Simulated scan of single mutants.
Amino acid sequence: MDLMKKLSIIVPCFNEEDTIPIFFKTVDEVLHTISDINAEYWFIDDGSSDNTIEEIHKLNVENTEKVHFVSFSRNFGKEAALYAGLQSATGDYIVVMDVDLQDPPELLPKMYAYLKDGSYDCVGTRRTSREGEPIIRSFFANQFYKLINSISSTNIVNGARDYRMMTRQMVDAILSMTEYNRFSKGIFSWVGFKTKFIEYHNIERVAGNTSWSFWKLFKYSIDGIMDFSEIPLSIASWTGVLSFVSAILGLLFIVVRSIVIPGSSVSGWASLVCIILLIGGLELLCLGIIGKYIGKIYLQSKNRPIYIVREKK
């Protein structure tokens, strides 16, 4: 007879008071169909401003042995919540899920079956469609995956979700990466291990509204590119080289023209001003790229905690 295994479910929450009870009931019903696991829940309250922590408290009181939580002192972001959950989880297998039920719980038995027989170290999920999302968001999401996979040695599967089940060995490898600037999709891929992806169609939120605006997603994508690629630095360097070569060629043209056509005057002041502004803009762009990397180094060197706990049970 197989020994009982422990499954830890990590659930980052930010202003999700409406979805928490629905999530717990739905997932628990699915887990009851898996006979050889004991489950523990780790709800991570990421500094919510609504009644999220009160809803988590209720679940904790009603299910003391099963439901646990970590409450942050303020909002530190989803990446910090994921890291806190991975640190707190004690299971043989660990799964990360969104509380809005856009990650279908009915896939859990299938994910567990793949890990149980030892064929894989991780079972991830990816959306094959983005129906229900704004068209502009879907377009930029697809372009992001194309871009990052073309400039980074770490492959990130298009449509991959944070929703995945992992072995303890893989989670320990992820926790060994203590970097301050975290991009979990990249980290999951970078650590390696044998991974299988299960595909499904996009599912709408069960309740509430998403806290991810287009601007937040855009900034998150920029961080992901800079965390897993040095190409932007190379672009800055080559832009400088191109500007230098262009300037040399321009000077040579002026000198040669002055020799061939004595007394020729230099015209086109408007064009000259535009060129100066263009070069100045390129310089500022390159400085901005370099500054972004230096800023990440600066934050890492401070060695600040990734999150601060206000309450934990």
Rank of each mutant, 00 (worst) to 15 (best):
M165K: 02
W238S: 09
M97A: 06
I34W: 04
S229I: 05
S301A: 15
N158L: 11
D2C: 09
H68Q: 04
N158R: 10
F253W: 15
T154V: 14
R161A: 11
G240P: 04
E283K: 15
D172W: 02
V70C: 11
I259L: 15
L251W: 13
W212D: 11
C122K: 01
F193S: 09
Q102K: 14
D227T: 15
S176Y: 09
R137M: 11
V255S: 07
K185H: 06
S258G: 08
I187G: 08
S211R: 13
A247V: 10
P232T: 00
T167R: 01
T19M: 06
I10Y: 03
E199A: 13
Y220W: 15
N209Y: 11
R182V: 08
A113F: 05
Y145F: 15
K219G: 01
I225M: 05
V11H: 00
Q102T: 15
H201G: 14
L233D: 00
F197W: 06
G295I: 01
F140S: 08
K196P: 02
K194C: 05
I248V: 15
I53Q: 06
F23R: 04
D36A: 10
F228I: 00
L251E: 09
F193G: 06
G192K: 08
G263M: 05
E131H: 07
K296N: 09
A80L: 02
E311A: 05
Q169R: 11
S71W: 04
F244W: 14
I37M: 02
N158T: 08
G132K: 03
A141S: 13
N155G: 11
I235W: 14
L108P: 02
L242F: 12
Y93E: 01
E179L: 11
Q169K: 14
R310F: 07
F183Q: 00
S267L: 12
L147E: 00
V70W: 05
T64M: 14
I259Y: 11
M177P: 03
R164F: 11
K110A: 15
K219A: 06
K6W: 07
S119V: 04
Y41R: 03
K6Q: 12
G281S: 10
V171G: 01
D50Y: 06
Y180P: 08
V96C: 09
L175K: 12
G268A: 04
F14S: 01
G192N: 06
F197I: 04
K219L: 12
V123S: 03
N142L: 08
V255M: 08
N303M: 10
A247G: 04
Y120P: 05
W238V: 12
E79D: 12
V70H: 07
A236G: 07
I198R: 02
E106R: 12
E106I: 14
K116P: 07
L3K: 15
A207S: 09
V255D: 07
K216D: 12
S152N: 00
N38F: 08
E65A: 11
K216A: 13
G268D: 00
S119W: 07
F144P: 00
G208Y: 02
R310H: 10
G263I: 06
I297C: 14
L59V: 06
L282P: 12
C122L: 07
P134R: 07
S49H: 13
C13G: 04
I44G: 03
K312P: 01
S213L: 03
P21S: 02
L115Y: 03
P305S: 02
G281D: 02
R310D: 10
N51R: 13
L287Q: 14
T26D: 08
I203K: 13
Y293I: 11
S271I: 14
V256G: 10
I20W: 00
Q143W: 09
A80D: 00
L277F: 13
